[in-house]
Design a protein around this nucleic acid. Sequence first.
DNA 1: CCTTGATTACACCGATCTGTGTAATTAGGC
DNA 2: GCCTAATTACACAGATCGGTGTAATCAAGG
Lengths: 213, 213
Amino acid sequence: MTLRPEKQNMKERILETADRLFYLRGIRAVGVDTIAAEVGISKRTLYNHFPSKDELIATYLQGRFNKAPPSDKPPIEQILGTFDRLERGFASKGFRGCPFVNAVAELGSEDKSVKKIAIAFKESRRIWFRDLLLKLDVPDPEGLATQLTLLVDGSIAQDLVRDDPSMARAAKEAARVLLGNAGVGTGGRDRGDTSKPAKKRSSSRRTRRPPEL
Amino acid sequence: MTLRPEKQNMKERILETADRLFYLRGIRAVGVDTIAAEVGISKRTLYNHFPSKDELIATYLQGRFNKAPPSDKPPIEQILGTFDRLERGFASKGFRGCPFVNAVAELGSEDKSVKKIAIAFKESRRIWFRDLLLKLDVPDPEGLATQLTLLVDGSIAQDLVRDDPSMARAAKEAARVLLGNAGVGTGGRDRGDTSKPAKKRSSSRRTRRPPEL
DNA sequence: CCTTGATTACACCGATCTGTGTAATTAGGC
DNA sequence: GCCTAATTACACAGATCGGTGTAATCAAGG
């Protein structure tokens, strides 16, 4: 059953090329002919592996859904490290925004399956933040996790249009402030003692529901 | 020289329809035939007013570049009010993300003019924040303004995929924390005295360059 | 060697795209 | 009423789109 080496993973090869082109140039901007030509195969072969372009798009987005590997580093480092990885991603040449946001922006609200994948991805990242925040015992892990995702997606959008990787650093600084406000020492503040600095000080730390000035 | 009423602002009529369709369905997804049909004119007439679709796209984006009207309200209210307006926008049925981010996502890095307009828009909002922050005499108006734009764009992206207007509120809460950290009372914190509460306390307020944990 | 399945080249379909050419029609200003 | 300019309908060009049908070729396993 062993095919010749270069065609061993035909489906993966197609998917890799589709991923690259879809992400870099946009989904609507890339035709199946272009993908087939780039892979070096006939269009017929492509359609023997994917019944339609929509299926290829869905598989492409599914493939972008890489969950973060479990880490044993302290939660605070994992959270802030997210923005470091983000900055490295921005600085890399191939970065062009969030594939899920781009897909929703391109394909409109018509395509329900695309939107479902995008929502699932965004939510998974929020949950990832939340679970780390739970270990830190912050007052409102749900809300703070949402706020962190805002910083992530905000910096991604800003970098997409500005090509400015420093947006990730700005997001990190903001994240540090939000974490500090929640009673978490981030190692970047006044005193460097990161050793559990008095969490949950009565209620004044929490960003309470404000009286809507 | 007065044309008959319904055709008095032909160019504007075309532009309004193009704006609506481009924004709601996407730029690539809408053809000039569709626009002309929707306006109720012939395709030839459309091309008599716009030499190409690219020109129409550029004009569409230029038209989205509406600078905020000057306000005499306190800066802090203007800043936080941004997120209230954002939330109302999210809740309105026609909202579909940031037209500039969407355009860049759709058209790729090929179209330089589109990207330039998008950058100009993003920067104008940052400057708007910064100028308000200057009046508040915060330690780092430039950096804080950038952070606020991250919250704005983050909530827009999140709402685009989640259809959840509460993202604007989450952004507002985060903005409140960031402003509070900069020494600005936002009316939602412990003591309600918004009367210039000890700005610029030596250096410990500032989110300093952290030692990169 | 022969069978089997994958891949190939290639033509083709109908639809859609941006953009143009043209001649007829319409309406306003003088 | 006449001139001018805008708008109209409509055909058409040339390209690209997603997708299919077909027959030949190729390679691997028995």
